[in-house]
């Protein structure tokens, strides 16, 4: 059975029409399933774990990047708690105009268009990164001020100007050059540092204030600023970031990797 998990924000009047269109499309495509509405009382980890144990065919995140992140964490936690490999794929139906960068990168159109992607069921095994006890699929972001990066005990990186640090698994940036494009299937993370005054990365001009590293593991330390995972969850530092898990994800033809 397909399990549709509606984030709590989509259960508001604003999205009634969008949900109605999505549900009609899902019915037309014969992809009906069970709907779980997240609210204050619903424990997402428990709900996802139970549905996986019952043999769910697909777990579908209906919402935003934040919803996708919550469900990825729930699936991976179900793997850890039960010491098993979850093969159930993750599907995504983005709802709303903002905060859907993961779906866009995966080539999934909004609302009813996403139904067609679910129906085509194009599967990709994508890497899932871990930061502390949390998991993420796209990137971890932190301000560069006061941040020290330790790379696998071999070397450390200090950033001398204000800016932003991104540890990327699946790139939601559209202006990275071809040679620096992260691959979410290579078990490698890309560290992208952009300091103020840096130009766009598109022409790979080394004199612009941008840096790029490929690595397997790093530790981020910052006394003041948190790390933001998937544009959704804040976690404190120090945090070790690595990539050692994977998840089947339903992707669209227009995916950007």
């Amino acid at each position: 059975m397909h399990i549709y998990i509606y984030d709590d924000y989509v259960n508001t009047k604003k999205y009634d029409n969008a949900l109605a269109r999505i549900e009609t499309r899902i019915t037309d495509l014969g992809l009906n399933g069970k709907i779980i509405r997240l609210g204050l009382l619903e424990n997402i980890n428990e709900a996802v774990e139970n549905e996986i144990k019952r043999g769910a065919k697909t777990i579908v995140a209906v919402g935003s990047d934040q919803t996708v992140n919550k469900i990825i964490n729930a699936i991976i936690n179900a793997e850890i708690n039960n010491q098993m490999k979850v093969e159930t794929p993750l599907g995504i139906i983005p709802v709303g105009n903002e905060g859907n960068t993961i779906a866009e990168t995966l080539g999934i159109g909004r609302e009813e268009e996403a139904g067609d992607v679910l129906s085509a069921r194009r599967l990709e095994k994508l890497d899932i990164a871990q930061a502390g006890r949390n998991f993420f699929i796209s990137q971890a972001r932190i301000a560069s001020q006061g941040t020290t990066l330790e790379i696998e005990k071999d070397y450390s990186i200090e950033i001398l100007e204000p800016g932003e640090i991104n540890v990327i698994n699946l790139s939601v940036f559209s202006d990275l050059p071809e040679e620096a494009k992260p691959n979410p299937r290579d078990k490698t993370l890309e560290l992208y540092i952009k300091t103020k005054g840096g130009r766009k990365f598109s022409n790979l001009n080394p004199s612009s204030n941008q840096s790029f590293f490929s690595l397997k593991k790093l530790t981020i330390i910052n006394q003041k600023h948190p790390i933001i995972l998937d544009n959704a969850v804040e976690i404190p530092t120090p945090a070790e970031i690595s990539v050692n898990r994977s998840l089947n994800v339903i992707v669209g033809k227009e995916r950007r990797f």
Partner: peptide
Amino acid sequence: KEKIKEVETIIGPSIKVKGNFNGQGNIV
């Protein structure tokens, strides 16, 4: 420098790297 292809690592002007940096590809 602008014609360097397949760059693995770019250490930008506002970056300080301390330690033993080992790479496989081209480094700027």
